[in-house]
Design a protein around this nucleic acid. Structure first.
Lengths: 223, 223
DNA sequence: AAAAGCTGTCACAAAACTATACTATTTATA
DNA sequence: TATAAATAGTATAGTTTTGTGACAGCTTTT
């Protein structure tokens, strides 16, 4: 279940938010000022922070700015009507939503669940494949073997990524050519072989994962 | 493999999404405006729709709303930066994810695969036949006996796969020759015998599954 | 502009595969 | 059981397919 950090200097406000939030099933922790909020936000992992703008010691904006330097935990700001409206509305701080005080707890809860749902839905899943010491990071376009970066040429990446993404499948020469080079490629028949050769060289000890399917094509096999 | 409908009025955007998506193995269809999108989304079954918000004729939201009346095909919306309102509005419509323009194709692909994976629950249909310890994986082009990989030559694979796919049926010599070797093969009559022999050898303890139909041909029999 | 790097093509070498010829065995039938 | 027909087994030469190094035309970097 999601964890929420509630930051407000007024005990009563924290209590009411806590009451509603835990009723919704969230795990709630509290902080009474900006400094404590920063400490907790950075030392623990919250799914959402609900923070008041007006607080003694360190205000909500400054705390938000500081937290954002290190983490991108979603933040909902609470503020009095008209107060710093532009700053919040400009979203220059990267605030995910804001609620005007006095607020209805019910409305706040709706915003909370909306933000959490949105963030979790769009959370970037790491797009990585690994097998033994071989790690393929598709999104970063990085291949490492036993922690060592493997340098590949663009074509090698394209060919390799396609094969890894379709690992375990028999890929015909035609498929590989048309997917990696494009269906309008009518070059030499041996081009694929040459690149397979280069790829195997780059893969070093893992070259055996690129299996030749005589008369058909190739298959990437890991485990 | 999954089918995707890409909806955007800009040809260039459609092309780049199409390129990346087909590289990932998706089958991609295109629509250039909201009306066409609705037509296609309702008449065909897509696994995912990627749709721009801003389009002439009929915008993405309206199209989304209309499609959702009839189908729950997952939808990823594309829209220009800063349209926070659109973002929330989009989620209220039951949009599955949201990507800000200009987007990196790589990021979009990650979202696409995340949504599809989430919706389908990573169900992977494998094209496999098995009988006792004999496993034939057609898509990987792998045959195993009691967990051990069996190495076959191309002709053996072709012949064996054809027989397994038509298991239980009497296959005449003529049928086998023409299906496996091609209609234009007029070689020696004994060629088939020889390959049957090699195949039986490869099948080891399961060689009895290849039954001789004297005067007719052969039949693959498994249980 | 020079240097370095990437791609596609080619020729040749190496490996793997296949068709065929030939012999042996099995099966059907008289 | 003898005989012919059909299928099984074996060896191998010739063919097909793949691996590899060299290289030239391009592109990107420096």
């Amino acid at each position: 279940m999601s964890r929420i950090l509630v930051v407000d200097d007024e005990f009563g406000i924290r209590e009411i938010i806590k009451k509603y939030a835990s009723f919704e099933g969230y795990e709630v922790k509290e902080a009474e000022d900006g400094m404590k909020a920063i400490d907790m936000a950075l030392s623990e992992d919250f799914d959402l922070i609900v923070m008041d703008v007006m607080m003694p010691e360190l205000d909500g904006f400054s705390a938000c700015k500081e937290i954002r330097k290190h983490k991108k935990t979603p933040i909902i700001m609470l503020s009095a009507r008209g107060e710093e409206y532009d700053r919040i509305h400009g979203f220059e701080l990267g605030v995910d939503d804001y609620v005007v005080k006095p607020f209805s707890p019910r409305e706040l809860m709706m915003r909370v669940s909306a933000v959490i749902k949105r963030v979790q839905g769009t959370r970037e899943e790491s797009d990585v494949f690994s097998y033994k010491g071989l790690v393929v990071d598709f999104s970063a376009r990085i291949v490492t073997i036993d922690g060592e970066r493997v340098n590949m040429t663009p074509k090698e990446y394209d060919l390799f990524f396609y094969m890894v993404k379709n690992r375990g499948l028999a890929l015909t020469r035609e498929t590989l050519i048309s997917k990696v080079w494009g269906y309008d490629f009518f070059g030499d028949d041996r081009t694929l072989d040459t690149h397979i050769k280069l790829l195997r060289k780059s893969l070093g000890e893992y070259s055996y994962c690129v299996v030749t399917l005589r008369g058909v094509g190739y298959r990437f096999e890991a485990e």
